[in-house]
Amino acid sequence: MSNYNIQEMIQKNKSNKGAGFEKLIPVILLIITSISVLATIGILYTLISQSLEFFNRESFVQFFTSATWQPYSSEPEFGIWALVMGTLKVVVIATIFAVPIGLGAAIYLSEYASERAKKIIKPILEVLAGIPTVVYGFFAINFVTPFLQSLYSGISLYNAVSAGLVVGIMIIPMIASLSEDAMSSVPNSTREGSLGLGATKLETTFKVVLPAAISGIIASVVLAVSRAIGETMIVSIAAGSTPNASLDITSSLQTMTGFIVQITSGDAAYGSSLYFSLFAVGMTLFLFTFVMNIISQWVSKRFREEY
């Protein structure tokens, strides 16, 4: 037998080590964790303080009521609605295009596809979701716009349709995969209950699976819309830089994000109204997406079906 006594050695070792180290760990981790909170505070502080700076110079009322955005004019006018309308046009087109297709794909993957088909299709969707938006922008201006122009010559080089369609393409994978997750979490026994009564897969999907998964599906759509609102490069490249509040979808427009990119890629003199207007627009954009995210989280919590 050995002469070592393990228990004794452990005791000896223990007394050497400071128990303080062990207590310090959660504190250190908490400090690091607070960086994420600091990031939020930083964003809010930046947006709010610089926006206040902006509203010191320009009219608060005009910003929220006017639909004319002419920052370069000698009598500049900052009416956010021109930019908001630009954003909404693109987002509405993207949503109309992406929601049916995204849901159709989700239904196919969750209800109809074999395991093998899923194994092939899902990575494709992942790749599609991973393509940088600047690449989508290139695709919009070099492929989609010329294609649309060949169908209908009244469409100008920069327009809402092309940008909207490509933003739609960008959010399809998100809707498809999040909705598929929601539908897959409906237990199979529920599906069997319906199929066992002689219902077709389609009837089972629409009358049982979709209603049961509706909260997750709505949450995924809202999240995707939020992503579309914040999408920047596609609209900067393909939608143009003409702020206007018209409903025309065939001519140039500007979105909130497009404006930020246009100003920052040129040079807005630091300290000018133009510079601070970036943050007022950024604040508006942040509020839009923030509200959407809150709705998404609320919906997915509130209406979750418990089995």
Partner: peptide, 30 residues
């Protein structure tokens, strides 16, 4: 057609997340 004529009751109760009425009326409705 087969399942319309040959109904099934499962091991674990699996009502749909719907009202009692809608559960029972589900088959005739579809």
């Amino acid at each position: 057609e087969l399942r319309t004529k040959v109904g099934m009751v499962f091991q674990k109760p699996n009502p749909f997340p719907k009202s009692i009425y809608d559960n029972v009326a589900y088959g005739p409705r579809v």
